[in-house]
Nucleic acid binder design. Structure first.
Lengths: 249, 249
DNA sequence: CACTGCGCACTTGTATACAAGTATCGGTCG
DNA sequence: CGACCGATACTTGTATACAAGTGCGCAGTG
């Protein structure tokens, strides 16, 4: 499955398009689920989880046929993915799934560290006492579930989401969203080979404490340090998985 | 012209499409100048320079007619602009030129400061003695032309481009490109009302010195400080131009 | 005169048709 | 047997046709 260039197993693709991943939380946006969006969501998920292999060529006609839509929405979805750099343009004009360059993962995390650091700073400058209390509560909760890694991850995501919401920084959020797909992709790749873990609880607590102390610079530094430790861990986990991405010449 | 929602004057639009802004420096990329790209370049330029007013509604049929191409490339160009946030989606599905929110300019510069800071750090870690010499030479050149503001700006752009090239950080560059249009847009808006200037020469020299000293953290800090001073200047210049953007309710 | 209901014109989203360029594969020739 | 050449099939890019949903305006009415 990993090396197969096409959409394998063909499971309810046509069903997925037209309904797509309708997250229950999106109650606010009553968007007309344009088929292009559905195709985009589908392909994006498959690229991130690896069922669409790196370097796999994606052509509009075969995607059209397999998904049961015309080329138009497929084309639009591919352009969206291209803007997100999840697919790269071939010299001839087509696209292929972006290669997995493990060395580049570091770069993704570097950028993420700066952006999330900025958001932490902004959050610190805007947080009300109630907000601070909520962050502290999340850290306490994380501590309580610290033995269940997936729970820790879930609470962690919630923590970061809270920071992002507090920051209310449109540009920071937009750019973070731009690279989130790649972060998730590397994370999915490293998931199988986790070699260790940092102390998520303490690192998050450091961020929360800095915000509680109303020290924006400290908040930024703590968040940045946290992401950079995550980066080091991911890098360590990824080292050696190159054997699973034998696509580069 | 400022308040007119449509493409005014209609000067050689059809001529522009099909040839487009073929920058002489783009010799490396022998891209088939797809009409969609030409439309994108054209609209992007008009949004940045203000000839397409903020909040102006852009509809595919009229753009098609005025540019002499079908809706397909127009649609694609609009989606690219949307991904870049230079146009925003209307609830009904159409798009309009992104409003000019002066308060948001600060956010753009904040993000830019982090990204360029990261690039300066990376550049510092990779620069060869020759590279350092080139940067120093640019600062010297900037000093020599310090009385001609446009020349200073030109050399400054070259300096930043050199840093970016040295950094060789795909993600930093990609995200920087994402917001460059907005930076240019605010800069164009502020150009008419420049109220002062920071000492570009000294600020750039600080960056070059840090890199020459092989101090990545200092390079990052110097670049970040430089951008933040530019931000303060732009903010100051922009204050009061709200009268020129009387579009919000 | 204000309000309500209908109808039109316009918009986007999708599908399909057409043109042009390119890589590939087979055949043929040296 | 290898290399070159031509034709074919496939790709993207563009144009056009069709369908559906939405807002706006106008007329009629209380």
């Amino acid at each position: 499955m990993w090396h197969d260039g096409r959409v394998t197993t063909t499971p309810d693709l046509r069903a997925a398009v037209g309904q797509a991943t309708t997250a229950p939380g999106d109650a606010g946006l009553a968007r007309r689920q344009s088929g292009a969006r559905a195709v985009y969501d589908l392909l994006r998920g498959r690229i991130i989880d690896g069922s669409l292999a790196p370097d796999a060529r994606l052509t509009e006609p075969v995607l059209s046929a397999e998904l049961g839509v015309s080329r138009t929405p497929v084309r639009e979805a591919l352009r969206l993915l291209q803007a997100e750099a999840l697919v790269v343009e071939l010299p001839t004009g087509g696209v292929r799934v972006a290669p997995l360059d493990v060395a580049d993962a570091r770069r993704v995390y570097d950028v993420r560290a700066r952006l999330e650091g900025l958001l932490a700073r902004d959050a610190c400058e805007r947080a009300t006492p109630d907000d601070v209390a909520r962050l502290v509560r999340l850290v306490t909760l994380m501590d309580a579930v610290r033995d269940h890694e997936d729970e820790v991850l879930r609470v962690g995501a919630q923590f970061h989401g809270e920071i992002e919401a507090l920051a209310d920084n449109r540009w920071g959020s937009a750019l973070l969203r731009q690279i989130r797909g790649h972060v998730d992709r590397y994370r999915a790749l490293a998931a199988r080979r986790r070699v260790g873990t940092t102390d998520h609880v303490d690192e998050h607590r450091a961020v929360a404490d800095a915000i509680a102390s109303r020290d924006p610079a400290a908040a930024e530094a703590a968040m940045r340090a946290h992401i950079e430790r995550s980066a080091a861990l991911a890098e360590q986990s990824l080292r050696g998985v190159g054997s699973a991405t034998d696509d580069l010449p």
